[in-house]
Design a protein around this nucleic acid. Sequence first.
DNA 1: TTTACTGTAATGAATATTATTACAGTAAGC
DNA 2: GCTTACTGTAATAATATTCATTACAGTAAA
Lengths: 138, 138
Amino acid sequence: MNSDFTLAIHSLTLLALQPDRMSTSEYIAESAGVHPVRIRKVLSLLKKNGFITSKEGTGGGFIFALELDQVNLWDIYQITSEGALQPKCTESNGQCIVGANMKSVLFTIFMGAEEHLGLYLKDYTIKEVVELVKQKEA
Amino acid sequence: MNSDFTLAIHSLTLLALQPDRMSTSEYIAESAGVHPVRIRKVLSLLKKNGFITSKEGTGGGFIFALELDQVNLWDIYQITSEGALQPKCTESNGQCIVGANMKSVLFTIFMGAEEHLGLYLKDYTIKEVVELVKQKEA
DNA sequence: TTTACTGTAATGAATATTATTACAGTAAGC
DNA sequence: GCTTACTGTAATAATATTCATTACAGTAAA
C-alpha cells in the first residue's frame, strides 16, 4: 500500500481544524512532510468524491465540504486504496492444481478480508480522528 | 506488503496435497512461478515456527508437520507479514498539532485494524484453502 | 497585469521487492 | 570415500513501485 490513505486522513484532519479558511497544498504538505504536488494529487481524489472543495487562484486552497462525522476511514480507504490488500500473485503454473487455482482462491479470500476491514474502518470518522489527535496533544 | 504471505499459503497448500513425500523448493517454485531461493526463504520462516519440517540432501525437501486444520491464515500472516498494514508515515512537522500526533493516532488505529483482520483470517485454515482449490478445479 | 494558487503530466530519484549467483552444509546411494 | 541432490543463507543484480521534482497551463484576486 502506498501512503495515499494516510495522507488523505492527515489532510482531512488538518482541514477539519481549519473550518473557516482555505488551506493551501503547501501548508498541508509542510504538516505532513511531503511534496505539495503529492498532496494535490491525493486531494483531487477527495474532491472528486465530494469530501472537500477547492479554489484556484490567490487566496485559494482546500476546505472541508461535509460535516466531520460524515466522512469515515472506510470511505477514504475505498477512494485511495481499494484493492490494496489484494495480493500480487505472479502468473503461476497452470499445469498444477494449486498453481492453476490459488490465484482465484486468494482473490476471494482477500476480497472478504477487505470487506471485513471495512466494518472496522467505518467506525472511525474524521470527527473521531480529530478527537484522538487532540487527546494525544493534551 | 510483499508476497511472502501468499507464497507461504501457496507452499503449504501444495505440501498439504503431498502428505506422504517431501517436496523440493524447485517443485514448489515451479508451481508458484517464482525462484526456488525465494521459496526456501519463506519456508524457513514456516519451519522456524513448526508448521513444516525439512530435510537436506538427496531425497530431501519440505513436508507438512501438523494437521491441515491446525494452521490458519492468521498464523501465517503473523509469521510472514505482521505490521504490513501499518502505514509508513514520513516524519512530519512536530510544530503542527496534526503533524505531531497523527503518526501515533494512525498507529493505534492500524493496530486495531490488524487485530480485526486477524479475526477474519483465523477462520481460514489450510484445510479450507485446500477445499477451495479443489472446488475451483472441479 | 501581476501574484498566488490549483491541476496534471512527465521525468528522475529513492526505495522496496524479487531474481540470481555463489557456496557451505547435509544426507543418500553407489 | 565420492558423487549427486538437496537445504540454508549471504551477497549482489535486476526490476517494480513509490515519491519528489520540474514544468507549465488554467484560474481568480488585488
